Amino acid sequence: MILLFSRIFLEESQLPVLFSKLQFVDVPEGEVIESKDDQFSFEQAFLLQILSEILKERLGDVTVSKDVALFVFEIFKKSIGVLEHAMRGNSGLPSGFTRVDVLGYSLTILRDICAQDGIRGNMVDANDVVDVLLSYGLIELLLSLLGALEPPAIIRKGLKQIENQDSASCYSKPCPYKGFRRDIVALIGNCVYRRKHAQDEIRDRNGILLLLQQCVTDEDNPFLREWGIWSVRNMLEGNDENQKVVAELEIQGSADVPEINALGLRVEVDQRTRRAKLVNIPSSEKSL
């Protein structure tokens, strides 16, 4: 079955046909429903789940066609509307919500499609599929989504002291499932792997600092730090312009982090080097 699904739905271009036929398969007979692009059925989400698992297991063996890659990208774009009303997810995929699962599995499929050239050693065909996705605005969309998300949990805790933070956070979107931010960062990292034009696009769209901010631990996104480091590494590899931007960054200030303060430490910025450092909190301040 795995081989059959791989051949029919990933390597050939039959996915759009079945996916469209599954759209309203779970609607009771006789019920009239308006067709909307952002409405998905449980069966559609389940099909994407199967394909995501197959692609993850056979990452180096399956060749995904450009038509299938673009179709999954279209599904992903149509599914992001769920973020407008999504609550913070309490679990990973499957989340138990059809629209969230469609969003997540289409994202992970794209992530693994863009990882294939790294597995195979930069084969031309794999690069071609990724470059097609990039030409349709994949990087621009991912940076926009990442920038719209609320900060990782550890950063949110440190920002509670900043005035008007609560009112500002209402404009930020939570991760609809645990790992959503991580999967976006992973997809970006795979896209920029040894592709200078993709690396340059990150810089041109002011995304370098945004990616650097993902190199933290986050209870809502397991392994975010590892994927963040991987993405930054790929963004900088062989790109002097990006390396120069990072080298010229300066720390502008610091925020108190309760977990660090509990250890009797605080973060200060060295005025000479503009680097962060940990210092002991004086005894006189501890009693305040």
Score class of each variant (00 low, 15 high):
2 I>M: 04
7 R>W: 13
10 L>W: 14
10 L>Q: 10
10 L>K: 10
11 E>W: 06
11 E>M: 11
14 Q>N: 12
25 V>I: 15
26 D>Q: 13
27 V>T: 14
28 P>F: 06
29 E>L: 12
30 G>M: 05
32 V>R: 09
33 I>T: 11
33 I>S: 05
35 S>V: 15
36 K>Q: 13
37 D>P: 07
39 Q>S: 14
39 Q>V: 14
40 F>Q: 12
40 F>W: 14
48 L>K: 02
51 L>G: 02
52 S>N: 12
57 E>C: 03
61 D>Q: 12
68 V>G: 01
69 A>N: 04
70 L>C: 11
71 F>L: 05
72 V>W: 08
73 F>V: 05
74 E>A: 08
81 G>N: 12
82 V>N: 01
84 E>V: 00
85 H>D: 11
87 M>G: 00
87 M>K: 11
89 G>F: 02
93 L>A: 05
95 S>T: 15
95 S>M: 09
96 G>F: 07
98 T>C: 09
99 R>S: 11
105 Y>K: 07
106 S>K: 05
107 L>P: 02
108 T>G: 05
113 I>G: 06
113 I>Q: 04
114 C>S: 11
117 D>N: 09
118 G>I: 03
119 I>A: 09
121 G>P: 06
122 N>A: 08
123 M>Q: 12
125 D>S: 15
126 A>L: 06
128 D>W: 03
132 V>M: 09
133 L>P: 03
136 Y>T: 10
139 I>H: 01
139 I>N: 00
140 E>H: 10
142 L>I: 05
147 G>L: 04
150 E>F: 01
150 E>G: 13
151 P>C: 01
152 P>G: 01
152 P>C: 03
152 P>L: 03
153 A>Y: 14
153 A>M: 13
159 L>A: 09
163 E>M: 06
164 N>T: 14
165 Q>R: 15
168 A>K: 15
168 A>E: 14
170 C>P: 00
171 Y>R: 13
174 P>M: 04
179 G>L: 11
180 F>I: 03
187 L>R: 03
190 N>L: 06
193 Y>Q: 12
195 R>S: 09
195 R>W: 09
196 K>M: 06
197 H>R: 10
200 D>A: 12
208 I>G: 02
208 I>S: 02
212 L>V: 03
213 Q>T: 10
215 C>P: 01
216 V>W: 00
218 D>E: 07
219 E>C: 02
220 D>M: 06
223 F>I: 02
223 F>E: 10
223 F>H: 10
223 F>P: 00
226 E>K: 08
228 G>W: 01
231 S>L: 01
231 S>A: 13
233 R>D: 11
235 M>Y: 00
239 N>R: 04
239 N>A: 04
241 E>P: 00
241 E>Y: 08
244 K>Y: 07
244 K>Q: 14
246 V>Q: 07
247 A>K: 15
249 L>A: 07
250 E>M: 00
256 D>L: 15
256 D>C: 13
261 N>P: 05
265 L>A: 03
269 V>E: 14
269 V>K: 15
271 Q>D: 11
273 T>I: 10
275 R>E: 15
276 A>E: 14
277 K>L: 15
278 L>D: 06
283 S>R: 10
283 S>P: 01
285 E>G: 01
286 K>T: 07
287 S>A: 11
